[in-house]
Protein backbone atom coordinates (compact mmCIF):
# COMPACT_ATOMS: atom_id res chain seq x y z
CA UNK A 1 0.00 0.00 0.00
CA UNK A 2 2.84 2.34 0.91
CA UNK A 3 4.27 1.99 -2.61
CA UNK A 4 0.88 2.15 -4.26
CA UNK A 5 -0.28 5.49 -2.85
CA UNK A 6 2.28 7.68 -4.66
CA UNK A 7 1.60 5.83 -7.90
CA UNK A 8 -2.16 6.33 -7.56
CA UNK A 9 -1.66 10.01 -6.70
CA UNK A 10 0.52 10.33 -9.80
CA UNK A 11 -2.20 8.57 -11.80
CA UNK A 12 -4.68 11.28 -10.81
CA UNK A 13 -2.22 13.99 -11.77
CA UNK A 14 -1.30 12.43 -15.12
CA UNK A 15 -4.94 11.61 -15.82
CA UNK A 16 -6.24 15.13 -15.26
CA UNK A 17 -5.34 16.63 -18.69
CA UNK A 18 -6.94 13.63 -20.38
CA UNK A 19 -9.97 14.04 -18.11
CA UNK A 20 -10.51 17.66 -19.12
CA UNK A 21 -10.20 16.75 -22.80
CA UNK A 22 -12.63 13.85 -22.39
CA UNK A 23 -15.18 15.97 -20.52
CA UNK A 24 -14.99 18.69 -23.17
CA UNK A 25 -15.52 16.19 -25.96
CA UNK A 26 -18.44 14.60 -24.10
CA UNK A 27 -20.40 17.86 -24.06
CA UNK A 28 -19.56 18.58 -27.68
CA UNK A 29 -20.61 15.10 -28.76
CA UNK A 30 -23.75 15.20 -26.63
CA UNK A 31 -24.93 18.02 -28.90
CA UNK A 32 -24.36 15.79 -31.93
CA UNK A 33 -21.07 17.32 -33.10
CA UNK A 34 -17.94 15.18 -33.23
CA UNK A 35 -14.77 17.23 -32.78
CA UNK A 36 -11.63 15.26 -33.61
CA UNK A 37 -9.46 18.35 -33.26
CA UNK A 38 -8.73 17.72 -29.56
CA UNK A 39 -5.02 17.26 -30.16
CA UNK A 40 -4.80 20.70 -31.76
CA UNK A 41 -7.02 22.29 -29.13
CA UNK A 42 -4.91 20.88 -26.30
CA UNK A 43 -1.76 22.33 -27.86
CA UNK A 44 -3.44 25.70 -28.31
CA UNK A 45 -4.57 25.58 -24.68
CA UNK A 46 -1.12 24.54 -23.48
CA UNK A 47 0.60 27.39 -25.28
CA UNK A 48 -1.94 30.13 -24.51
CA UNK A 49 -2.10 29.02 -20.88
CA UNK A 50 1.67 29.07 -20.67
CA UNK A 51 2.07 32.42 -22.44
CA UNK A 52 -0.53 34.23 -20.34
CA UNK A 53 0.76 32.73 -17.10
CA UNK A 54 4.25 33.74 -18.05
CA UNK A 55 3.16 37.28 -18.91
CA UNK A 56 0.84 37.95 -15.96
CA UNK A 57 2.18 35.57 -13.34
CA UNK A 58 -1.34 34.35 -12.69
CA UNK A 59 -2.01 30.71 -13.62
CA UNK A 60 -5.77 31.29 -13.33
CA UNK A 61 -5.60 33.93 -16.06
CA UNK A 62 -3.64 31.40 -18.08
CA UNK A 63 -6.41 28.83 -17.68
CA UNK A 64 -9.01 31.43 -18.62
CA UNK A 65 -7.00 32.36 -21.72
CA UNK A 66 -6.75 28.68 -22.69
CA UNK A 67 -10.52 28.34 -22.40
CA UNK A 68 -11.14 31.38 -24.59
CA UNK A 69 -8.61 30.30 -27.23
CA UNK A 70 -10.02 26.76 -27.27
CA UNK A 71 -13.55 28.07 -27.66
CA UNK A 72 -12.45 30.47 -30.40
CA UNK A 73 -10.77 27.78 -32.51
CA UNK A 74 -13.72 25.42 -31.98
CA UNK A 75 -15.85 28.14 -33.53
CA UNK A 76 -14.24 27.34 -36.91
CA UNK A 77 -15.15 23.71 -36.45
CA UNK A 78 -18.72 24.73 -35.58
CA UNK A 79 -19.03 27.00 -38.62
CA UNK A 80 -17.78 24.29 -40.97
CA UNK A 81 -19.72 21.40 -39.41
CA UNK A 82 -22.93 22.98 -38.11
CA UNK A 83 -23.64 25.82 -40.51
CA UNK A 84 -21.99 24.50 -43.66
CA UNK A 85 -22.55 20.78 -43.11
CA UNK A 86 -18.90 19.91 -43.81
CA UNK A 87 -17.31 16.55 -43.02
CA UNK A 88 -16.67 16.43 -39.27
CA UNK A 89 -13.78 13.96 -39.41
CA UNK A 90 -11.82 16.03 -41.92
CA UNK A 91 -12.64 19.30 -40.16
CA UNK A 92 -11.28 17.84 -36.91
CA UNK A 93 -8.06 16.84 -38.67
CA UNK A 94 -7.81 20.36 -40.08
CA UNK A 95 -8.16 21.75 -36.56
CA UNK A 96 -5.40 19.45 -35.32
CA UNK A 97 -3.05 20.54 -38.11
CA UNK A 98 -3.87 24.19 -37.53
CA UNK A 99 -3.32 23.91 -33.78
CA UNK A 100 -0.06 22.01 -34.20
CA UNK A 101 1.25 24.50 -36.76
CA UNK A 102 0.16 27.68 -34.99
CA UNK A 103 1.59 26.58 -31.64
CA UNK A 104 4.87 25.45 -33.23
CA UNK A 105 5.38 28.93 -34.68
CA UNK A 106 4.12 31.02 -31.78
CA UNK A 107 5.70 28.80 -29.14
CA UNK A 108 9.27 29.14 -30.42
CA UNK A 109 10.14 31.94 -28.02
CA UNK A 110 8.79 30.08 -25.01
CA UNK A 111 10.81 26.90 -25.42
CA UNK A 112 13.15 26.44 -22.47
CA UNK A 113 11.38 28.92 -20.19
CA UNK A 114 10.04 27.83 -16.82
CA UNK A 115 7.01 29.29 -15.03
CA UNK A 116 5.89 28.80 -11.48
CA UNK A 117 2.29 28.02 -12.46
CA UNK A 118 0.10 26.09 -10.07
CA UNK A 119 1.55 24.50 -6.97
CA UNK A 120 0.29 21.78 -4.71
CA UNK A 121 -2.26 22.84 -2.10
CA UNK A 122 -3.43 20.02 0.19
CA UNK A 123 -7.10 20.33 1.08
CA UNK A 124 -7.42 20.90 4.85
CA UNK A 125 -8.91 17.91 6.74
CA UNK A 126 -9.65 15.92 3.55
CA UNK A 127 -5.97 15.39 2.83
CA UNK A 128 -5.57 13.83 6.28
CA UNK A 129 -7.91 10.95 5.47
CA UNK A 130 -5.73 7.85 5.16
CA UNK A 131 -5.24 6.50 1.60
CA UNK A 132 -7.91 8.67 -0.03
CA UNK A 133 -6.42 11.90 1.25
CA UNK A 134 -2.97 11.61 -0.31
CA UNK A 135 -4.36 10.12 -3.51
CA UNK A 136 -7.10 12.65 -4.24
CA UNK A 137 -6.68 15.71 -2.03
CA UNK A 138 -3.00 16.57 -2.20
CA UNK A 139 -2.84 18.20 -5.64
CA UNK A 140 -2.99 21.57 -7.35
CA UNK A 141 -6.24 23.53 -7.69
CA UNK A 142 -6.80 22.54 -11.32
CA UNK A 143 -7.17 18.91 -10.23
CA UNK A 144 -9.84 19.89 -7.67
CA UNK A 145 -11.56 21.95 -10.36
CA UNK A 146 -11.78 18.83 -12.52
CA UNK A 147 -13.53 16.94 -9.68
CA UNK A 148 -16.04 19.79 -9.51
CA UNK A 149 -16.50 19.69 -13.26
CA UNK A 150 -17.25 15.96 -13.22
CA UNK A 151 -19.90 16.41 -10.50
CA UNK A 152 -21.32 19.48 -12.19
CA UNK A 153 -21.64 17.76 -15.57
CA UNK A 154 -23.32 14.69 -14.06
CA UNK A 155 -25.87 17.01 -12.48
CA UNK A 156 -26.16 19.28 -15.51
CA UNK A 157 -26.67 16.57 -18.12
CA UNK A 158 -29.32 14.59 -16.29
CA UNK A 159 -30.90 16.96 -13.78
CA UNK A 160 -31.35 20.30 -15.54
CA UNK A 161 -33.55 21.63 -18.31
CA UNK A 162 -30.53 22.89 -20.28
CA UNK A 163 -28.92 19.47 -20.02
CA UNK A 164 -32.09 17.87 -21.32
CA UNK A 165 -32.14 20.30 -24.23
CA UNK A 166 -28.50 19.47 -24.99
CA UNK A 167 -29.20 15.75 -25.04
CA UNK A 168 -32.34 16.27 -27.12
CA UNK A 169 -30.41 18.16 -29.77
CA UNK A 170 -27.84 15.39 -29.96
CA UNK A 171 -30.30 12.53 -29.96
CA UNK A 172 -33.11 13.87 -32.10
CA UNK A 173 -32.49 17.29 -33.59
CA UNK A 174 -35.75 17.26 -35.55
CA UNK A 175 -37.84 16.71 -32.43
CA UNK A 176 -35.81 19.31 -30.55
CA UNK A 177 -36.37 21.75 -33.40
CA UNK A 178 -40.11 21.19 -33.36
CA UNK A 179 -40.11 21.96 -29.62
CA UNK A 180 -38.73 25.38 -30.47
CA UNK A 181 -35.07 24.73 -29.57
CA UNK A 182 -32.48 26.22 -31.88
CA UNK A 183 -30.42 23.21 -32.89
CA UNK A 184 -27.82 25.38 -34.58
CA UNK A 185 -27.36 27.74 -31.63
CA UNK A 186 -27.11 24.90 -29.09
CA UNK A 187 -24.57 23.03 -31.20
CA UNK A 188 -22.47 26.18 -31.57
CA UNK A 189 -22.54 26.88 -27.85
CA UNK A 190 -21.55 23.37 -26.73
CA UNK A 191 -18.94 22.91 -29.45
CA UNK A 192 -17.29 26.08 -28.19
CA UNK A 193 -17.65 25.34 -24.46
CA UNK A 194 -16.44 21.79 -25.04
CA UNK A 195 -13.46 23.06 -27.03
CA UNK A 196 -12.64 25.49 -24.23
CA UNK A 197 -12.63 22.69 -21.65
CA UNK A 198 -10.39 20.57 -23.87
CA UNK A 199 -7.97 23.49 -24.05
CA UNK A 200 -7.91 23.68 -20.23
CA UNK A 201 -6.65 20.10 -20.34
CA UNK A 202 -3.83 21.36 -22.53
CA UNK A 203 -3.17 24.25 -20.15
CA UNK A 204 -2.91 21.74 -17.30
CA UNK A 205 0.02 20.14 -19.11
CA UNK A 206 2.01 23.36 -19.37
CA UNK A 207 0.84 25.33 -16.32
CA UNK A 208 0.43 22.57 -13.70
CA UNK A 209 2.16 19.43 -14.86
CA UNK A 210 5.46 20.37 -16.45
CA UNK A 211 5.62 24.17 -15.91
CA UNK A 212 7.07 24.58 -19.38
CA UNK A 213 6.14 24.53 -23.04
CA UNK A 214 7.42 22.02 -25.56
CA UNK A 215 6.32 21.65 -29.15
CA UNK A 216 3.70 18.89 -29.58
CA UNK A 217 3.58 18.32 -25.81
CA UNK A 218 0.07 16.81 -25.87
CA UNK A 219 1.68 13.70 -27.43
CA UNK A 220 -1.52 12.01 -28.55
CA UNK A 221 -3.51 12.64 -25.37
CA UNK A 222 -6.20 14.36 -27.45
CA UNK A 223 -6.71 11.23 -29.48
CA UNK A 224 -6.72 9.06 -26.37
CA UNK A 225 -9.48 11.32 -25.04
CA UNK A 226 -11.54 10.70 -28.17
CA UNK A 227 -11.30 7.00 -27.45
CA UNK A 228 -12.08 7.54 -23.77
CA UNK A 229 -15.38 9.25 -24.64
CA UNK A 230 -16.49 5.96 -26.17
CA UNK A 231 -15.11 4.02 -23.20
CA UNK A 232 -16.99 6.35 -20.86
CA UNK A 233 -20.21 5.86 -22.84
CA UNK A 234 -20.58 9.66 -22.71
CA UNK A 235 -20.73 9.58 -18.91
CA UNK A 236 -18.52 12.13 -17.04
CA UNK A 237 -18.02 9.87 -14.00
CA UNK A 238 -16.81 6.98 -16.15
CA UNK A 239 -14.61 9.46 -18.00
CA UNK A 240 -12.83 10.18 -14.71
CA UNK A 241 -12.27 6.48 -14.11
CA UNK A 242 -10.91 5.99 -17.63
CA UNK A 243 -8.64 9.03 -17.46
CA UNK A 244 -7.06 7.89 -14.18
CA UNK A 245 -6.53 4.45 -15.70
CA UNK A 246 -4.48 6.09 -18.45
CA UNK A 247 -2.83 8.38 -15.96
CA UNK A 248 -1.83 5.26 -14.04
CA UNK A 249 -0.18 3.75 -17.09
CA UNK A 250 1.76 6.95 -17.66
CA UNK A 251 2.79 7.08 -14.00
CA UNK A 252 3.99 3.45 -14.04
CA UNK A 253 5.83 4.01 -17.28
CA UNK A 254 7.74 6.95 -15.79
CA UNK A 255 8.57 4.94 -12.68
CA UNK A 256 9.78 1.92 -14.64
CA UNK A 257 12.01 4.22 -16.68
CA UNK A 258 13.31 5.96 -13.57
CA UNK A 259 14.02 2.60 -11.95
CA UNK A 260 16.38 1.93 -14.83
CA UNK A 261 15.19 -1.36 -16.31
CA UNK A 262 16.34 -3.06 -19.47
CA UNK A 263 13.10 -2.24 -21.28
CA UNK A 264 13.89 0.54 -23.70
CA UNK A 265 12.03 3.84 -23.52
CA UNK A 266 10.28 3.69 -26.92
CA UNK A 267 8.71 0.34 -26.01
CA UNK A 268 7.35 1.78 -22.75
CA UNK A 269 6.07 4.84 -24.60
CA UNK A 270 3.89 2.58 -26.75
CA UNK A 271 1.90 1.36 -23.75
CA UNK A 272 -0.83 4.06 -23.62
CA UNK A 273 -1.59 3.62 -27.31
CA UNK A 274 -1.74 -0.16 -27.05
CA UNK A 275 -4.00 0.22 -24.02
CA UNK A 276 -6.28 2.58 -25.97
CA UNK A 277 -6.77 0.05 -28.73
CA UNK A 278 -7.36 -2.75 -26.21
CA UNK A 279 -9.89 -0.71 -24.24
CA UNK A 280 -11.71 0.29 -27.41
CA UNK A 281 -11.81 -3.31 -28.58
CA UNK A 282 -13.27 -4.57 -25.31
CA UNK A 283 -15.89 -1.81 -25.32
CA UNK A 284 -16.83 -2.46 -28.93
CA UNK A 285 -17.22 -6.21 -28.38
CA UNK A 286 -19.49 -5.54 -25.40
CA UNK A 287 -21.43 -2.94 -27.34
CA UNK A 288 -21.93 -5.50 -30.08
CA UNK A 289 -23.68 -7.66 -27.51
CA UNK A 290 -26.03 -4.78 -26.73
CA UNK A 291 -24.71 -4.22 -23.22
CA UNK A 292 -23.66 -0.60 -23.57
CA UNK A 293 -25.38 2.38 -25.05
CA UNK A 294 -25.28 6.12 -24.62
CA UNK A 295 -24.01 7.45 -27.92
CA UNK A 296 -25.95 10.51 -29.08
CA UNK A 297 -28.11 9.18 -31.90
CA UNK A 298 -27.35 11.97 -34.36
CA UNK A 299 -23.60 12.13 -33.63
CA UNK A 300 -21.72 13.31 -36.68
CA UNK A 301 -24.75 14.11 -38.81
CA UNK A 302 -25.44 17.72 -39.76
CA UNK A 303 -28.95 19.04 -39.31
CA UNK A 304 -30.77 20.86 -42.09
CA UNK A 305 -34.08 22.29 -41.07
CA UNK A 306 -35.58 22.27 -44.53
CA UNK A 307 -34.61 18.71 -45.39
CA UNK A 308 -36.43 15.57 -44.32
Amino acid sequence: MEILIPILAAAVRSGTPILYATLGEIITEKSGVMNLGLEGLMLLGALSGFAVTSATGSPWLGVAAAFVVGAFFSLFHAIVCVSLGGNQVVSGLALTMLGTGVTAILGRNYVGQLISGFSRIPVPFLSDIPVIGPIFFNHDPLVYLSYGLVLFLCWFLWRTKSGLNLRAVGDNPRAADSLGLSVVAIRYVYTMIGGGIVAIGGAYLSVSYSHMWTEGMSAGRGWIAVALVIFAIWNPARAAFGSYLFGGVEACQLRIQAAGTNISAPILLMLPYILTITVLLVISIRKGKGILFGAPASLGTPFYREER
Binding site: G40, F76, V80, V90, S91, L93, A94, L95, T96, M97, L98, G99, T100, G101, V102, A104, I105, R108, E215
Partner: peptide, 15 residues
Protein backbone atom coordinates in the same frame (compact mmCIF):
# COMPACT_ATOMS: atom_id res chain seq x y z
CA UNK B 1 10.17 29.90 -39.61
CA UNK B 2 9.61 26.42 -38.17
CA UNK B 3 8.78 23.66 -40.60
CA UNK B 4 5.35 23.32 -38.95
CA UNK B 5 4.36 26.63 -40.59
CA UNK B 6 3.20 24.65 -43.59
CA UNK B 7 0.81 22.85 -41.23
CA UNK B 8 -0.98 26.17 -40.72
CA UNK B 9 -1.44 26.53 -44.47
CA UNK B 10 -2.46 22.87 -44.76
CA UNK B 11 -5.02 23.19 -41.98
CA UNK B 12 -6.45 26.35 -43.54
CA UNK B 13 -6.68 24.69 -46.95
CA UNK B 14 -8.66 21.81 -45.47
CA UNK B 15 -11.01 24.15 -43.61
Amino acid sequence: LPIASTLVVQGCILF
